[in-house]
Amino acid sequence: MLERRVVIRNRLGLHARAAARLVRVANSYHSAVRLERIDGSHSADAKSILSVLMLAAGFGTELRAIVYGEDEDEAINALCTLIAEGLGEEGRQ
């Protein structure tokens, strides 16, 4: 099991399109992927779009990615890179 802290870098936060992109990447791995708010107030299955949307993670929100499975290394790297790069959004801060 791997854990890593990530901060939402894109201006609009984890909005619908960004969330869809995240879910698509998460689904391309066999590992189970969870995202939690750092205060533990909310936890989401990163393979479910509604679950990710319910995190309501705005700009600057700190999250913990928890990945478990055979390809957890690749999965956590891909997800954290995606989030760090602003989830493919233009004009991020």
């Binding site: 609009l12 909005h15 705005g58």
Partner: peptide, 13 residues
């Protein structure tokens, strides 16, 4: 739904 979600993301700001 997405509009509602986006509004809820802005609300804390």
């Amino acid at each position: 739904f997405v509009a509602r979600h986006t509004a809820s993301l802005r609300a804390p700001d």
